[in-house]
Structures are given as C-alpha cells and as structure tokens.
C-alpha cells in the first residue's frame, strides 16, 4: 500500500503544486484581501477588518446579485432550450455534416468575447442592424437601436455559451440508442410518449449539467453585460470589475467576489436539487 501511495505521490506531485498553488492559494488570498484594510494606492495585505463585507448590506448590490441570477437562469434556459434540439440534430447527422457543424461551433471559441460583443453592437445598431430587417418584414415602423438592452445581453451570452452546451450534451445524444425509441413505438407508444419515456430520462442528467454550466459561465460574464446592457441591470461581475479596476478598492471587490461565488454554489446546488440530480463524474 505504501508503494502505491508513493507512486501516486510522485505521479500527482506536479498537478498538486500547480492546482493547489494557482487554484487553492489564490482563493485563500481572495479571502485574505477581503478582510484587509483598504489601501487606495496599492495592494496592501495588512489589517483585519470586516468593513468590506458591509457592502453586502447595500440594496444596490443585492439588486445586482439578483440581476446576475436572473440573467444566469435566462441564458441557461435559452442555451439549453436551443442546444438540446441542436445537439439532437447534430448527433443524427451524416458524418461529414456532423463534423462540419462541430468544427464550426468549436471555431467560434477562438473569438474573444470583446469582439463578439462588438459584433453584436454592430448587428443591433440603428443604422445597419437587425431592426432594419424587422422594418422590411413589417414588424417595426422605423429602425432603431436594439442595444443597450437585456435582450442584447442575453443574445450575446447565449452565443458565447452555446458551444459549451453542445459539447456537454453531445456524448449522450450521440450514444442514444435509436432502437430503444423504435421499440417503444412498436409497443404502441406515440412519438411524444416514446420521446418522454426514452430520451428524456437518459438526457436529463447532462441537460442539467449543461444548464448549470451555462449559468455559471453567465455569472462570470464581464464584457457583454457591460457593453450591451443598461447600467440598471449590470450584474455583479461588472460591479466587481469596476470596484477593483476603477475604484481601486480590492478588499471590497474581493468581498463581493466571495459573495458572488457563494451565491453561484448555492444556485448550482438548488438547480440540482430541483430535479434531484446528483453531480456525477460523467
């Protein structure tokens, strides 16, 4: 047994150093800064005070947190709502088309979120944007800018999150045994019944994981809500950024970050409990 432990120790020594050093230590640092004295000039790691956590009692911050959660749920729902049928379709495609779609989706990951946000600004602008199409279709009277708006933020975030949703759902949809559905149909079930009793149970787990991942990625979004959204609905990530970068108040930003992380964990927990799914190492 000791030989095994030694082996494991050697094998995992570098990953441990890397992950504990750059994963765990920074988080501890975050906690440390959040209780440190505010130094407007630099990064002072001295002092011990809970002053920064006082921020959590401010209603505007709680409002921003609610905005974060609301945005996360909406983006999660839309991205899974679109990604679920999309992945189903991709998994059923002929090989060449399937690979083409997968490469296409993956390639969009190579674009920075800043440039994606800028593209959405252009696409939703008054002069040359989507509204002109709506005018042509008779849905609007005159072109107008569709940004800043909540819809713009959701559209941009769904765009950024969708490839990850598809990647999460792909394995299970690809392995879906169509014979099972066929068997259910043969036994007299309607297509809907077959879908509900065969497909849904098998894909529920990954769908929930995809939903939670979309929510978590949304909670962390900084650039799109900043550029495409109204200040009244700026989520926590944006406020954390402005507190740290513009206000130079690291303890406050750190306290807000801890708060946001705690809320995210709670959100994921609630989401899983709501469908009684356990997080599985799939």
């Amino acid at each position: 047994m000791t030989a095994l432990h030694l082996r494991l120790g050697v094998l995992l020594s570098w990953p441990m150093v890397a992950l504990l050093g750059l994963g765990a230590v920074p988080f501890v640092l975050l906690l440390r800064i959040s209780v440190a004295r505010h130094d407007p000039n630099g990064i002072a790691l001295s002092g011990l005070t809970l002053h920064a956590y006082g921020a959590l009692t401010e209603p505007e911050l709680l409002g921003a947190l609610l905005d974060s959660i609301r945005l996360a749920v909406i983006v999660g729902a839309v991205s899974v709502g679109l990604g679920y049928p999309l992945t189903w379709a991709i998994a059923r495609m002929r090989r060449r088309l399937q690979v083409a779609w997968l490469v296409f989706l993956l390639a969009t990951l190579s674009l920075s979120d800043v440039l994606i946000a800028f593209s959405w600004q252009v696409m939703l602008s008054k002069r040359i944007g989507l509204s002109n199409l709506f005018v042509a279709l008779g849905l609007m009277d005159g072109p107008e800018s569709l940004t800043p708006s909540a819809g713009a933020v959701v559209a941009c975030l769904v765009y950024l999150v969708l490839p990850f949703t598809v990647l999460t759902l792909f394995p299970v949809f690809s392995r879906l045994d169509l014979d099972l559905i066929q068997a259910a149909r043969t036994l007299g079930a309607s297509p809907l019944r077959a879908f509900l009793s065969v497909v849904v149970p098998m894909t529920k787990g990954p769908a929930m994981i995809a939903f939670v991942m979309a929510m978590v990625l949304t909670v962390g979004a900084y650039v799109p809500p900043l550029v495409l959204g109204r200040p009244q609905s700026w989520p926590m990530a944006v406020l954390i950024g402005s507190t740290a970068l513009a206000g130079h108040d690291l303890p406050r930003a750190s306290a807000m970050s801890v708060f946001l992380l705690a809320a995210t964990v709670l959100l994921a927990f609630v989401a899983f409990q709501a469908t009684r799914m356990r997080v599985r190492n799939s």
């Binding site: 407007p40 402005s242 507190t243 513009a246």
Partner: peptide, 11 residues
C-alpha cells in the same frame, strides 16, 4: 475619495 466616488456613482 476615489472608492467613494465609484461606489456612489455606480449606485
């Protein structure tokens, strides 16, 4: 007062 200005302005 930068942090105060930032906080109040954001609010």
């Amino acid at each position: 007062h930068l942090d105060y200005m930032e906080r109040q302005f954001t609010k």
